[in-house]
Write a protein that binds this DNA or RNA. Sequence first.
DNA 1: TTGCTCCTCACGTCACGTGAGGTGGC
DNA 2: TTGCTCCTCACGTCACGTGAGGTGGC
Lengths: 348, 348
Amino acid sequence: MTTQPLLTIGGFARAVGLPTSALRHYDEVGLLSPAETDPATGYRYYTPDLEHRARLVALMRDVGVSIETMRIVLDGDPEEALAVLREVAADRAEHAQRTREVIDTVLALADRARSLEVARLRVGAREMGAALRQVRPAADRDPASALAAVALDAGAGTLDVVATNRYWMACRSMPVGTDPSGPARAVLRLAEADRLADRLDGLDEVVLVVTSEGRLSVEVDDDLIGVETSDRPFPAHRLVLEGVPDPTTRLLVERDAIERALTEAARSVVTLALADERLHVEGRAVDALVRGKPGTIAMRTALLLRALAACVGGRVLLEVAGAADAVRVSSPDQPGFVALVMPTHDEQ
Amino acid sequence: MTTQPLLTIGGFARAVGLPTSALRHYDEVGLLSPAETDPATGYRYYTPDLEHRARLVALMRDVGVSIETMRIVLDGDPEEALAVLREVAADRAEHAQRTREVIDTVLALADRARSLEVARLRVGAREMGAALRQVRPAADRDPASALAAVALDAGAGTLDVVATNRYWMACRSMPVGTDPSGPARAVLRLAEADRLADRLDGLDEVVLVVTSEGRLSVEVDDDLIGVETSDRPFPAHRLVLEGVPDPTTRLLVERDAIERALTEAARSVVTLALADERLHVEGRAVDALVRGKPGTIAMRTALLLRALAACVGGRVLLEVAGAADAVRVSSPDQPGFVALVMPTHDEQ
DNA sequence: TTGCTCCTCACGTCACGTGAGGTGGC
DNA sequence: TTGCTCCTCACGTCACGTGAGGTGGC
């Protein structure tokens, strides 16, 4: 047994990164006591082998672990120590999550008290969640982009849920009961759109309320879900949709068939030839119904595949105007959805 | 101006979900005062239009927002209100994250004090991070699976980083300075492996310490990073690797070429034919160097593509034994990495 | 001898919760 | 008249932080 050097409270405090006031407190409650205390002067003397315990205490104190929990961790059953610490971490994570939700709700409520409601739309929760998930793939994947977002846009009797990355756009229109009293739009960043879609799961009907300040809240029975909205610019999707000329050629095809043809072409850019009432993908014939003027159009394979994947139903309708105009992709099985895919001129 | 019904403190408390003790406190500090107070009896009377404010207070109180912050939110500048609330949410999220990290470190330190160190391995942080990311795609994607994990396994002079989903396995071996004093292995769930990889970014050299209880900690200079380990079973990858018979045929091919051939085959199961010193994928010839016994082997295209994608370098080496034996996939450009891919008998 | 460090109370913090002891309204 | 609700102090909580007033060791 070698005698260890004795440290005064100040030296020990510096060594382990705790204030002396905390060390005195830990001595008083018996969590961390000095190796010896001079009975005459009351001086506390610590030894270096106490530093390990003190450093654990310092770490836990830093994140607000209670003294009773520290006792369990330091002196209790290892199994229980593991359990209580995991519980602390889980509590904190849950608290952070709940704080976020409550704060969004508070902001929505406070905003409402100040600004006008410009739209109040009753929609099915399931359909709303499905729409958010359906258009999501068209959003920009770069989180820094203003287009890493989904827009909710209320027009005459419909609510449009839309996403775009400039190369293609997905838009789902849902009928709603009430007309907005003015132009109403709210833009949600992707992460927030995902959170909203998750919270809509299992609900029945909700009321979306958009205020004049462009903020969104969702009423569920008597409750209110706040949604964080983005102020960054988002294209006027109605103008984009209306800007596409009337189609000169229409093509109705089994989704499986065209997806297979695109995959088998194994090229990053494919040429679709529409002639003699037939579709040819890179020269290979695909069973399809073609009506209108003959023509060819070059598209990025990956874009077209993503747009097709977003469609619901077994058959898809492609509407083509000029070689430089966006192609409308939709499905007769789901009238509310349309994707717009820009053609390309590159030949890879 | 219609007179509103007056509510006593108890009725108001029930209406807004706050205890009367809290309401008295909010009156005292001037955050939420009753509409009138009877000067004779001191009775507090609230009106329904105070409920909106009170409900906001109740929400914020619930997540521990301070009274001073509530004042800003309720009576301050809207911009400032938005800023302080966002700050509260960000603080909570950061605190939750830090709590997690600290608790992992405390558990690692506490564990160390109790159990034996069985391995102490000095490795490059960058190489370790790269290894975790390289084997990751082979892990099971189902978060509930025991194989949604990465194993670190220290053997004679090497550390193996390995992941598998039973259909294929990826293993990267790194040379390490020290030998373990016993069998040393730690299994990390995927999320934890990702977190570790992120924390290794930008570091230089680290020391991995595995204890007899199978826990892992990472020393960085004087600091310690705790890593949460999993107790769920993980296959003995050395036995799996050693169980593959010596190859009868070897195939060296450009990675691009075989990937292209597999994509163009456009089938979910492909047959590789190795004969006459040539490779045929579904009948199409691919430039390659083939040595050994002729044979054919059927594989799931997606699995083989994923294994090829995990390889580093332009050329890949495939080593084939029997038609039912796993195929070893590696690259002469990175000797430390090997993938094992199970063949299939299904013909889709 | 002079700073510096150490000591022990005592009180404050933050947002209430919990009695004690007393009164008002149906 | 009897509960029930309301009132005002006063004190406790949790983990220390902050002086005040005093002493010990180089």
